[in-house]
């Protein structure tokens, strides 16, 4: 078996975090923990009253080893097929430009991957489980900031 199949990779991911064996996929019958509702920073609150929402904490926030695994997972789970190599955009949006339709905080990216989004982002929570999704979140949050693309000029400076 090639080490880059999801099963092989996920075993590797799990070995890294053996204490969190909830995320077996996809054969596992273990129910993943359902994340709570997240209040989005980007949402405007009517009357200035912010609705209640839970919090989600990325257990691997900023961990470069987990981010490296996430990069592998990004290709193994075919994320690059839509978001392009290095998440630079293809069918799906550019994620490296750090602009976000549904929020760019760890918990917000987590929700996008776990449950999917309209316009064709599949829900990966069932296939990847909590641990797998956090691994991807850690990778996406680690992407190097791309050059400023806001201005594109054809004039000679």
């Amino acid at each position: 078996m090639n080490a880059r199949t999801p099963v092989g990779l996920l075993l590797a991911v799990l070995a890294l975090s053996a204490c969190q064996q909830r995320a077996l996929l996809p054969a596992s019958n273990a129910a993943p923990l359902l994340p709570p509702a997240v209040a989005y920073e980007a949402h405007e609150a009517a009357g200035g009253r912010v609705p209640p929402g839970g919090t989600l904490r990325n257990p691997h926030q900023g961990d470069p080893a987990v981010a490296a695994n996430g990069a592998l997972l990004f290709t193994t789970m075919n994320c690059d097929g839509c978001h392009g190599p290095d998440a630079s955009g293809s069918v799906g949006p550019n994620l490296a430009v750090r602009r976000w339709r549904y929020g760019g905080a760890d918990a917000e990216v987590y929700m996008s991957i776990f449950y999917g989004r309209p316009k064709g982002m599949p829900a990966f929570g069932g296939a990847l489980g909590e641990e797998g999704v956090w691994t991807l979140v850690t990778y996406i949050r680690s992407l190097p900031k791309v050059d400023n693309l806001a201005t594109e000029s054809w004039e000679k400076p």
Binding site: G89, P93, V97, R99, V146, D147, L149, W154
Partner: peptide, 27 residues
């Protein structure tokens, strides 16, 4: 649209660099 995504102006969250073999199309 995919390969020279800089011809798009309808999504402020999804900016793309020009494709390197067709840099000028968005001009």
């Amino acid at each position: 649209l995919l390969l020279a995504g800089d011809v798009r102006s309808d999504d402020p969250t999804d900016l793309r660099a020009p494709a390197d073999y067709v840099k000028d199309i968005a001009r």
